[in-house]
Design a protein around this nucleic acid. Structure first.
Lengths: 170, 170
DNA sequence: TTTCAATAGTTGATGTGGCAACCTTCGTGT
DNA sequence: ACACGAAGGTTGCCACATCAACTATTGAAA
């Protein structure tokens, strides 16, 4: 099928895999975002921010650390935190210290309540979309494939993989 | 780790897989879009439209068929075709016939030239990001996993999987 | 001290997608 | 003939992401 003399086109197997991947890339985030938005008022990215703050000591994190945890650009994070502030789920706090001055995002009580209320349905949706339809072997395969793709697409973001986004309440 | 008595939280293995999947969902489309936008001026969705028209008889397709091929909502397609029209890569044509009246998107010569010029670098990028880092077994696993996820997230879109988006020139 | 570069963070402009409302054009029933 | 509903398609408004430009602070070089 391919024409190796002109350019390295995709084989039929690769075509199928690429088709499957692109369609997943389109539909899965949309489904996850739709459920969260509908049931809780925030999207997956905002949920990740709130969730990260829940885990943090004092429910506060520097903008920079938060951006790394959420694999986001400073700009995207800033806009998102501004949105969350409008809903009183988060506040910004400027901290001065001997070693410098920085901005922290702080989870409010309302934010903590909202994210705790949102988590169960979110996890159910993740199960419904992903883990209910995959065997344990496929889950392991997906993890490996994900790591490989990530190393190629965003090697500097491998740090994101180390901290889980959702944790059961302790 | 999980607390089976309260809610079905994710296991550690599932946490890792979910983390890998969400990060892939964020980074891979961004990388693909960035390369196409930088080198050719259109994003992946627009490339898919142009590419579908390339394969079509007379380089024309009804808006509705095109939306199905590209797994897109009518609205998204209409917006995108309007953009492509601004660049003279596509034109709209209203066709009357005994059986009805409809709108077709038609690929212009400039559009055909642009998509042909864009394809090799795009395929190289897809290889770099995906197929160069996966074994043939993993490609097969990815296909199966993708089908499973798709059946759960968008069962009505399974039709999208049947026609490849990029084909070598005949 | 002045300057220069680097880091942290914000802002505004612009591009893109989703949703709901809307307009046509059919086909069907009365 | 008329009404009505369904399908195809577009549009306007809003939500969100990106990029580049900008501010402010720190630390080092001159």
């Amino acid at each position: 099928m391919s024409d190796p003399t002109s350019a390295p086109w995709l084989s039929d197997d690769e075509q199928r895999a690429w088709m499957a991947l692109t369609t997943v890339l389109t539909t899965v985030p949309a489904a996850i975002d739709a459920q969260l938005k509908r049931d809780s008022g925030f999207n997956f990215f905002e949920f990740t921010i709130l969730s990260s703050l829940t885990q943090a000591p004092g429910r506060a994190l520097r903008m920079n650390s938060l951006a790394h945890l959420a694999c986001a650009s400073p700009s995207r994070l800033s806009h998102a935190v501004s949105r969350l502030e409008k809903h009183d789920w988060v506040t910004r706090r400027t901290t001065d210290s001997p070693v410098g001055r920085w901005v922290e995002a702080v989870l409010t009580d309302a934010g903590a309540t909202a994210v705790a209320a949102a988590a169960p349905a979110h996890v159910r949706e993740v199960r419904r979309l992903v883990f209910d339809v995959l065997t344990p072997e496929q889950v392991e395969q997906l993890t490996q494939i994900g790591y490989q793709l990530l190393r190629a697409a965003a090697p500097h973001l491998t740090a994101c993989m180390e901290v889980p986004a959702v944790r059961p309440p302790t």
